[in-house]
């Protein structure tokens, strides 16, 4: 599903966020992306949904080099992904229902079907009673759950989640992970960037560990074993 080959990412100011990163995540796979703050986790995800392009190397998603895609193809690819952004990125002027369903709307789903879908995913994150609230009327954790609901609403082929449980307590984190597991069970490929050693311990999955922009094996065992998260 995802193949990084010798990917280096240098931002404009000369910051090198990733150095020669190569990995492959197969279709239907489930992996955690870990590493200290600033290690490049978000950058990896941005390269996958083509918000950024690699400075060197190539990023392949669903068998296609993301650098060779036209705008409309990038959009089509993104529609097959569910993305939970680190900073939420809810639309402030739209209510929860609209935030969760506008991509479905763009895909031509009728209102009735959208309502059904929204109710379904919002129920899973425990927010079905807040459909008509605006994001600013929700707590940080609730906003995060709306973002998760939006990401899974369209039944994506690939789910990218950037610190999805950052603002959530353990109980809620487990519930969210159960949602991810459920859609993984239906064939969705999943990549979750996280600091949370609890998740790594509880869900023993493949771990891609970044240190200062490099993919390493160091620290993985430590984190998975429940040592201090950086």
């Amino acid at each position: 599903m995802i193949t990084f080959q010798g990917v280096t990412k240098m931002y404009e100011q000369g910051v090198v966020a990733l150095r020669n990163v190569s990995f492959h995540l197969e279709k239907g796979g489930f992996a955690f992306l870990t590493g200290p703050s600033g290690a490049g986790k978000t950058t990896v995800l941005k390269l996958i949904y083509r918000e950024e392009r690699p400075s060197e190397g190539s990023v392949e998603v669903a068998g296609r080099d993301t650098c060779r895609l036209a705008v409309s193809q990038v959009q089509r690819l993104r529609r097959r992904m569910g993305i939970v952004f680190q900073d939420g990125r809810l639309i402030d002027s739209r209510d929860v229902f609209e935030n969760v369903t506008f991509v479905l709307r763009a895909q031509g789903l009728a209102l009735r079907a959208r309502k059904e879908r929204a109710l379904n995913v919002l129920r899973q994150v425990g927010l079905s009673h807040r459909m008509r609230s605006l994001p600013r009327q929700l707590s940080g954790g609730e906003q995060q759950r709306v973002a998760i609901a939006r990401a899974v609403a369209a039944d994506p082929d690939l789910l990218l989640a950037d610190e999805p449980t950052g603002n959530l307590d353990r109980e809620m984190s487990v519930e969210i992970m159960e949602i991810f597991r459920r859609i993984h069970g239906r064939g969705t490929t999943i990549l979750i960037a996280t600091h949370d050693p609890f998740l790594l311990r509880k869900y023993r999955r493949r771990v891609l560990h970044l240190e200062d922009g490099c993919l390493t094996d160091k620290g993985v065992e430590k984190m998975a074993a429940g040592g201090d998260a950086p």
Binding site: Q75, L77, R79, R80, F85, R89, L90, V103, R150
Partner: peptide
């Protein structure tokens, strides 16, 4: 709003 729509793949 447009930035969000764009990044989640709205046509």
């Amino acid at each position: 709003e447009i930035a969000v729509m764009w990044v989640v793949g709205a046509p």
